Simulated assay, not measured.
Amino acid sequence: MARYTGPKSKIARRFREPIFGPDKALERKNYPPGMHGTSRKRGKQSEFAVQLMEKQKVKYTYGVLERYFENLFHKASAKEGITGENLLKFLEARLDNTVYRLGIAPTRSAARQLVGHKHITVNGEVVNIASYALRAGDVVAVRERSKSLEAVSNSVAARTINKFSWLEWDANALTGKFLNYPSRDEIPENIKENLIVELYSK
């Protein structure tokens, strides 16, 4: 399964956001990586650089690679509605992202691992494809024999109330339902999707 496996703290520092989850390195060094640290003088970024950086941030946040992202963008642009918002909705509907949003896993990478190791079911069937696109009404659950996993129980125990209106959670059965695509204002990530649309429009 293709995914980013490089240094995560370095990437988080580049964007100055904890895009892979809580990061002590980012808290200690809230400035871009590099041997010159905070003293490094950086010129004004070009419009293209700003747009490209925003695209990279989204790819790292959701854990997707270039070809998949480009295909998803074209799918979003072909769908009725605002392209940038459609793109984020499709990313939110990924199975690994939903497992993370439900609180079954503490991070998206951990959610991807649970899915890949066949610990997650969709509508009662085991699905091990992290990019599986959920549809309204789909039920995501922890596989019966996987409910005792320490990683799952620890994550669920640390879970707070359901923060996402497009998801329904049953703590006793460890199941969640994908109710619908979220609206843009419900997605908490700090993303300027219009910059990505401008980038692909060139």
Results as ranks from 00 to 15, higher is better:
residue 152 V to R: 07
residue 29 K to G: 03
residue 124 G to S: 10
residue 147 K to P: 00
residue 3 R to I: 01
residue 111 A to Y: 09
residue 52 L to H: 10
residue 14 R to P: 02
residue 164 F to Q: 07
residue 41 K to D: 03
residue 51 Q to W: 04
residue 101 R to N: 08
residue 185 D to H: 15
residue 158 A to D: 13
residue 110 A to I: 06
residue 88 L to R: 14
residue 22 P to N: 09
residue 197 V to D: 05
residue 102 L to V: 04
residue 93 A to M: 04
residue 76 A to K: 08
residue 130 A to P: 11
residue 10 K to I: 15
residue 58 V to T: 14
residue 69 F to C: 04
residue 196 I to R: 01
residue 91 L to A: 08
residue 118 K to N: 09
residue 95 L to K: 03
residue 104 I to H: 08
residue 154 N to L: 13
residue 144 E to W: 05
residue 9 S to R: 02
residue 140 V to Q: 04
residue 2 A to K: 13
residue 47 E to D: 15
residue 152 V to G: 05
residue 41 K to Q: 12
residue 197 V to Y: 00
residue 10 K to V: 15
residue 3 R to H: 04
residue 171 A to P: 14
residue 109 S to A: 15
residue 52 L to T: 14
residue 117 H to P: 04
residue 122 V to Y: 07
residue 52 L to E: 12
residue 91 L to F: 11
residue 194 N to V: 09
residue 60 Y to T: 03
residue 52 L to D: 11
residue 75 K to L: 10
residue 6 G to W: 10
residue 99 V to D: 06
residue 149 L to K: 06
residue 174 L to Q: 11
residue 32 P to S: 02
residue 76 A to T: 09
residue 189 E to S: 07
residue 6 G to P: 04
residue 27 E to W: 04
residue 85 E to S: 04
residue 179 L to C: 11
residue 124 G to T: 09
residue 181 Y to W: 00
residue 148 S to E: 14
residue 163 K to T: 09
residue 10 K to A: 11
residue 32 P to D: 06
residue 157 A to I: 02
residue 120 I to G: 09
residue 37 G to Q: 05
residue 98 T to K: 00
residue 25 A to V: 14
residue 112 R to Y: 08
residue 65 L to I: 00
residue 146 S to T: 12
residue 87 L to Q: 05
residue 201 S to T: 12
residue 44 K to I: 13
residue 194 N to H: 13
residue 197 V to P: 05
residue 44 K to G: 04
residue 199 L to S: 05
residue 80 E to D: 12
residue 133 A to Y: 02
residue 136 A to M: 09
residue 104 I to D: 03
residue 161 I to P: 00
residue 74 H to S: 14
residue 196 I to K: 05
residue 2 A to C: 03
residue 74 H to R: 15
residue 180 N to Q: 14
residue 123 N to F: 12
residue 50 V to D: 07
residue 191 I to Q: 00
residue 121 T to G: 08
residue 53 M to L: 14
residue 116 G to Q: 12
residue 190 N to V: 12
residue 3 R to T: 04
residue 62 Y to Q: 05
residue 94 R to P: 02
residue 150 E to F: 06
residue 38 T to R: 11
residue 171 A to I: 13
residue 26 L to D: 02
residue 102 L to G: 03
residue 3 R to N: 03
residue 107 T to W: 04
residue 9 S to G: 15
residue 87 L to H: 01
residue 4 Y to R: 02
residue 148 S to N: 14
residue 124 G to V: 06
residue 170 D to M: 10
residue 20 F to M: 04
residue 174 L to W: 03
residue 172 N to H: 10
residue 73 F to K: 01
residue 155 S to R: 01
residue 172 N to L: 12
residue 66 E to C: 00
residue 84 G to T: 08
residue 170 D to A: 13
residue 107 T to F: 09
residue 39 S to Q: 10
residue 44 K to E: 11
residue 65 L to C: 00
residue 51 Q to D: 02
residue 90 F to Q: 11
residue 184 R to G: 00
residue 6 G to A: 05
residue 128 N to H: 14
residue 88 L to G: 09
residue 199 L to Q: 06
residue 58 V to S: 05
residue 4 Y to S: 00
residue 26 L to S: 03
residue 143 R to W: 01
residue 182 P to L: 07
residue 143 R to I: 01
residue 5 T to M: 12
residue 115 V to I: 08
residue 126 V to S: 09
residue 138 D to M: 08
residue 66 E to D: 15
residue 199 L to D: 03
residue 200 Y to P: 08
residue 33 P to R: 00
residue 103 G to A: 08
